[in-house]
Design a protein around this nucleic acid. Structure first.
Lengths: 205, 205
DNA sequence: GCCCTATATATCAACCCGATATAGGATGCG
DNA sequence: CGCATCCTATATCGGGTTGATATATAGGGC
């Protein structure tokens, strides 16, 4: 599943420009999929070449000229085929959790700031979902699938909020780098590897 | 935060080979960060060039010869600096949720299979976390940060399990593509764009 | 003996991400 | 009225990641 497939899927809801698609992804998929212009425009160009979408240039009435993309019948078939073929992966890449893992190397103030920022972002994304669910912009109510995804995001991010609130104190007490600017924690290096426990026995240099 | 930083962080626990690092990432960060050989080995090569790590070649006793990487003092300082500088992002890329969003275009059997597979993967990752938490391989108990990350993963993935179990029936009732092999859902295309609602009014071609 | 798995390093094409450039229209504000 | 700023809209580029693949040896199971 790449951005091309996602564009095909979005176009099943109607014609759109690349700019529209980005906004759509941000509103509906903000908590589970990302796609920037650097992926969308090349994807649309390729899809056009494969005859899965067609573009009509509309002279710019409000702003510059735009290209409205429309799904072809072949494109619709291709999307349905991809839905059946793609494996349902679910990947998380969280700098936030990496920072938390190394909390013992962070100054307390930084740790607090990071936690607060993440809580703020969770609230922001939850607000985005609520805004989409009460979809004013489109008269139509979201599909059952869209509602499922929204509820999923709310459940998961709500659990994240609860967990952080319940455990941030324990994390701070677990020992952090105190506020001074000394970057060296301890001069002594651990004598044996913790990661590669089976490397023990090899003389270190 | 790239894989280079992650390698520095892992090496704060002790010396390791590229292979060890991959296994470490899989055990500790499996639910929040991914790194394959294609990222790790180039990262270690660059870090060596920057004098942030040093490598010792150990002739292969069990298997081929290995390179044990060790963090230098400069590397440790660089890692601490990166911890303070990196923004705590948290990104999710979920083909699974995209499939769920388009549930109305999926055959019921496929929908069931996808849900079951995701539940199975959640259980698998939860088992990985439990295995790491009761860390037998290393006598040492995980740090408070590591425990926080584990608990976070368990909370979030547990919420995902509960949500799926509670709402999969509603999703199926919401209307799916019935089992036959006709790929065309409806011949009639929606006349107005749902995504780009403000494109209404422009005549279509 | 043979196959499969685990250890261990390395590379490559394809793809994605984030930043940046460009530009006209709308909006706001003193 | 002039100026700044934001919104719409398209497009590209470098750097980094992904996933697959190649290579080689040791050990366990059958």
């Amino acid at each position: 599943m790449d951005v091309k497939d996602l564009c095909l899927g979005a176009l099943t809801y109607g014609d759109a420009t690349g700019y529209d698609l980005k906004k759509f992804f941000e509103s509906t998929f903000s908590h589970c999929f990302l796609a920037g212009y650097g992926s969308i425009y090349p994807a649309l160009a390729e899809l056009t070449g494969e005859k899965l979408v067609v573009a009509r240039t509309v002279p710019g009435q409000a702003g510059p000229s735009k290209k409205l993309y429309q799904l072809t019948d072949a494109g619709r078939d291709a999307f349905l085929a991809r839905l059946e073929a793609t494996e349902p992966q679910h990947k998380v890449k969280s700098e936030f959790l990496v920072l938390m893992h190394f909390a013992h190397l962070l100054p307390v103030a930084r740790l607090d700031a990071v936690l607060d920022q993440h809580l703020k972002e969770l609230e922001h994304k939850l607000a985005l979902i609520s805004a989409y669910e009460s979809g004013d912009e489109m008269g139509k109510r979201p599909s059952s699938g869209a509602r499922f995804v929204c509820g999923f995001g709310k459940a998961v991010m709500g659990a994240a909020q609860d967990y952080i609130l319940a455990h941030r104190d324990a994390l701070k007490k677990g020992g952090t780098r105190n506020g001074n600017r000394s970057t060296r924690i301890t001069r002594a290096r651990p004598k044996a590897s913790v990661i590669a426990s089976r490397n023990r026995g090899y003389p270190h240099a």
